[in-house]
Design a protein around this nucleic acid. Sequence first.
DNA 1: AACCCGGGGTC
DNA 2: GACCCAGGGTT
Length: 351
Amino acid sequence: MFENRAKPLLEWYKKEKRSLPWREDATPYHIWVSEIMLQQTRVEAVKRYYARFLEKLPTIEALAECEEEILLKLWEGLGYYNRVKNMQKAAKVIVEKYDGEMPSDYDKILELPGIGSYTAGAIASIAFGVRKPAVDGNVLRVLARQEEWEKDIAKTSTKKEAEYILEEQMPENDAGEFNQSLMELGATVCLPNGMPKCEKCPILNCCKSKKHGTIEQYPKKSGKVKRRIEKKTVLLIQKQEYFAVRKRPDEGLLAGLYEFPNQEGFLSEKEVLFFVEKQNLVPIQIKKIENAKHIFSHVEWQMQGYFILVEDTELKKSKDFIFIDKEEASENYPMPSAFSVYKKYMDKKLE
DNA sequence: AACCCGGGGTC
DNA sequence: GACCCAGGGTT
């Protein structure tokens, strides 16, 4: 099936491929870092993170030894923070078991934390020329349109079938280039949401959905589950020029990141004052500030904000909170984007 | 197999 | 508002 398409794809890719940072100095480590960052994340968003990450952590050893706070700071704003934690776990395995070098064997790569079939295939094929497919969302969309797949591309079974087909029919050489050509095609030509640029497609003549004029019906994909809504009250608690933050739990959403103290539900002024006093803080002033909304994949936060000025007293310590200024926050405390609306309050001086 | 895990671009 | 993004881990 695909042996006819490999040649035009490879020729097209050689001419049309984008110049991307991770294609310049394609060591196994660099490819690995780029593939993890690119999981569910656009190329444009990754570029700046990629350069800074490798500047700070140029080797797998450096990654293995990095303090988690610094690691999260390098990932701050990228999302899916378990990606970088798993990458560090894998780095430690590589240092201990493989003498600091990424193994070239597909199954050994696949065993590493944070690496599934797609990423293992990408690293093995691009870095080492191993004949393994790398099936991502781009590739599934291309295949579904080429073959008029009625299968749901969101299903695990569909991805496995794609991997099986591509592994059988992959060219003998150029596995990495072949995989990248399919992804590049999906990313730049065979675009989602019924907006393909078919006139630029090197394998247009084999595309069944184009032939039948049904391209907008593919790929078939099952709907997503509805988002739940969570209401929160976010507190900007100021003591002198410092603001209260706290560390989130080690598991779950935004694990290990820092946040402004917040409570479930929309609290009244009286309830907020009760909460603040319970933390052994003495409020001097309280005012309502703007509401904000942040949308995650499965949750929507609807946030109500309060600004509270508290007495500068060391008599009683607040156990849960850390008081930091804006500079400390930006240098050492990774915070999710969800609170970005409220970060500007850290600029304000004591009134 | 279903659900969790971010953030942002695009239509 | 819906969809999607060089997906993987957990249950």
